[in-house]
Amino acid sequence: MLAQPDTPAANASRDAVIDIDPGASCLEIQGLSLAYAGTPALSDLTLRVPRHRVTAFIGPSGCGKSTLLRALNRLHDLNETVSRRGAIRLEGQEIHAPEVAVAELRRRVGMVFQTPNPFPMSIYENVAFGLRLQGGLRKRQRDEVVEWALRSAALWDEVKERLGASAWSLSGGQQQRLVIARTLAVKPEVLLLDEPASALDPISTLKIEELIRSLKSQLTLVLVTHNMQQAARVSDYTAFLHGGELVEYAPTDALFTNPRLVRTENYITGRMA
């Protein structure tokens, strides 16, 4: 077990929270509480996210999944009303430490949002956006990285003929894969996906899921989804959140076939909205 304060309530739920070997964990969240203008959204969350695995967060709407994800690459920094306690460590390094540059952190922890958000520029420039921010790449190298990123996102064959076209001319599914390619281009260690397929049709969804599975060998993925089947299909570990608390965290198979807690069971069998 992790080193943590031993309150009875905490213990009760933590029986259902598995422990990841610290050596195999990429992200470590400890005692994380977060509130919007005093209203708590996350309370005392503690878990580890395994490296090079897909970890899914599930839970009812408003339970704090997006809030947690945004905390992981410090997107809350812009919102003055957010107050936070607890630690988040990326490869052992506290991400809020003063020596951590937020731009560098966000490059290491990429994020893909629910709605596709390509920038108002060409397909090529979208993928090259992060590279240009860093600078220092020749055009040849940049071209190579763009191609690699688009291939990794399984989009290359569809867009290689029209890299100069506006990114907004792509379909929704293509846009979402473009956004993933854009994030991959800066070679992140962690990829956070917040309901990446919720706005997409079944075929695009399948493509994204395949993509997630194939990316596992390169980086750590954290996936938020409302779709139980999706979580079951693509993730290795699943965490169930409810009311800002971590309820159950287990290998996906175990959680879906044999949930420890009634609350989890109710949720995954659809008895609780």
Partner: peptide, 27 residues
């Protein structure tokens, strides 16, 4: 302009100024 457009740029490590210049103003 939806917030997730700005956040998309921020999430790639852009500063607020870069986000403004390259994403928000063009839009």
């Amino acid at each position: 302009i939806p917030d997730h457009q700005r956040e998309g740029a921020l999430a790639l490590g852009a500063t607020r100024l870069e986000t403004l210049r390259r994403v928000v103003v063009p839009m």
